[in-house]
Computed example of a mutant assay.
Amino acid sequence: MPRQRIKTTWKIPNDDAQLKKYARYLRDKGIRTSTLDSYVFRVGRYLEFCDQEQPSQETGQKFRDHLMDNDLSRSSINNYCFAIRQFHRMLGLDFEFTFLKPHNEIPYYFTSDEVNRIFDEITNIKHLAIFKTAFFACLRAGDICNLDVKDLDLERLTLRVVEGKGGKNALLYLSEDAASTLRDYLAVRPDLKLDGRSPLFFSDFGARLDRRDIHRLVINYKKRAGINKPGGAHVLFRHTPASIMVLNGCDLLTIQHILRHSDIKTTMRYLHLADESKRERYDQFLKL
């Protein structure tokens, strides 16, 4: 009796194939890993919403409206649009979206007391090392995930990160407090190599962390600390240290270099915070 062929298909689902192709496209364009992962994730959500092999401009606009209806931040909606536009350029189509004008001021940040309350809730040495490293070096979530042990110099209290498309190295500062926590962490950190590299931080299952892991940690510890103020990893590790530096009288040019902003206009979003300490500095410096 002839054998019957099993009635199934081993074809890769179209969405997965498209996303893999898109990831290669972004990699070939020199997009850094953290941005690439974010774009692929966002386009995956987009394709899931559209349920079409090649969504139309009209469908793309419906997805954008869907994001706005769900009260996503302006920057999140714009990032979705950037990712989707790149995806359609890969397909040879020119999609255009109306990008939302970003706020020129930082709407919220955590106070020094709130940051300390969050740190005080952390009893896991790995998590505490992640938080203090990210906070004192003003790291993006993607920076944290991409760090290797060799990027640390605890004697000089510095940390090296790779910047953007050009792969340039940036040297960042660490506080002695962060370095002390890192020494305690490294003393118990298991030796692990992934793809020939030794990631500074990794999951309990031996994989590199991703940005969503970092965001979930921040939300969890913020909740434990009883802080209801909006904001996740970017607010805690970028907006907050910059805001605290401004309130303590630091000049914007120094903050620009620490945050690695290519344009001083981006840093100027923090300028309005200086008004809160302007009178104090006026009384301090204008004397006869």
Rank of each mutant, 00 (worst) to 15 (best):
41 F>N: 11
255 I>T: 03
10 W>Q: 09
211 R>C: 15
71 D>M: 10
242 A>H: 07
190 P>C: 07
186 L>W: 01
99 F>T: 03
152 L>I: 12
272 H>A: 13
61 Q>S: 00
103 H>T: 06
44 G>H: 10
136 F>V: 01
210 D>R: 05
83 A>T: 06
39 Y>V: 01
191 D>Y: 13
242 A>I: 04
245 M>Q: 09
257 H>Q: 15
267 T>M: 11
247 L>H: 00
14 N>E: 15
35 T>E: 05
26 L>D: 03
237 F>K: 02
48 E>G: 02
61 Q>H: 04
219 I>H: 14
253 L>E: 13
198 S>R: 14
193 K>T: 15
18 Q>W: 11
270 Y>N: 02
176 E>C: 09
55 P>I: 10
160 R>A: 05
148 D>G: 06
260 R>S: 01
142 G>K: 10
49 F>Q: 07
128 L>Y: 03
115 V>T: 07
37 D>S: 13
48 E>M: 08
176 E>D: 13
169 N>C: 06
192 L>D: 01
229 K>G: 02
210 D>F: 09
52 Q>N: 08
153 D>W: 03
207 A>M: 11
60 G>K: 02
189 R>G: 07
160 R>N: 07
188 V>M: 06
142 G>D: 07
154 L>W: 10
140 R>V: 01
141 A>S: 15
73 S>W: 00
120 D>N: 14
193 K>A: 13
194 L>I: 15
133 T>F: 00
137 A>H: 07
43 V>H: 02
160 R>P: 00
56 S>H: 11
8 T>L: 14
92 G>V: 07
57 Q>L: 13
286 L>P: 00
202 F>T: 01
253 L>A: 14
174 L>V: 12
125 I>Y: 04
108 Y>M: 12
205 F>E: 15
125 I>F: 08
192 L>K: 09
78 N>K: 02
53 E>Y: 05
235 V>W: 00
151 D>A: 13
203 S>P: 12
9 T>H: 10
31 I>D: 00
211 R>W: 06
107 P>T: 06
263 D>R: 03
254 T>N: 08
154 L>V: 12
218 V>M: 07
43 V>T: 05
27 R>E: 15
4 Q>I: 03
88 H>T: 04
29 K>D: 06
63 F>S: 03
125 I>C: 09
40 V>G: 05
189 R>I: 08
186 L>D: 05
245 M>D: 09
99 F>A: 02
47 L>N: 10
171 L>T: 05
213 D>A: 10
30 G>Q: 14
288 L>P: 15
85 R>C: 04
25 Y>W: 13
232 G>V: 11
264 I>M: 10
220 N>M: 11
285 F>W: 11
274 A>N: 11
84 I>L: 13
61 Q>W: 01
104 N>R: 13
282 Y>L: 14
230 P>I: 04
150 K>A: 15
166 G>I: 00
133 T>M: 00
